[in-house]
């Protein structure tokens, strides 16, 4: 999937992946896509909840070799 910005939250625990996602989205423009990588398994449900509550669509959420990869579109 194409993306405009990427950051790696590997090794960080709740709530840092969410807080850093929020920060990363702040300097993006509407429609741009953020790729976020995390190792915290709690981030799967947290990212979905973040998307539901903020209205930024979670385009995909996958797991690959212990890493969780998210693509989120800025609303």
């Amino acid at each position: 999937m194409n993306f405009d910005k990427e950051f790696d939250a590997s090794g960080l625990s709740c709530p840092l992946p969410i807080l850093k996602t929020k920060k990363a989205l702040a300097d993006m423009t509407s429609g741009q896509v953020l790729k976020m990588i995390a190792t915290d398994c709690g981030s799967v449900k947290d990212m979905q909840a973040f998307a539901d509550q903020t209205g930024n669509p979670l385009l995909s959420s996958t797991e690959e070799g212990g890493k969780y990869i998210f693509f989120m579109k800025k609303k």
Partner: peptide
């Protein structure tokens, strides 16, 4: 601090 920062991130 966790709940406050997360809630703020959620708007």
């Amino acid at each position: 601090f966790i709940l406050a920062s997360t809630a703020a991130a959620l708007g």
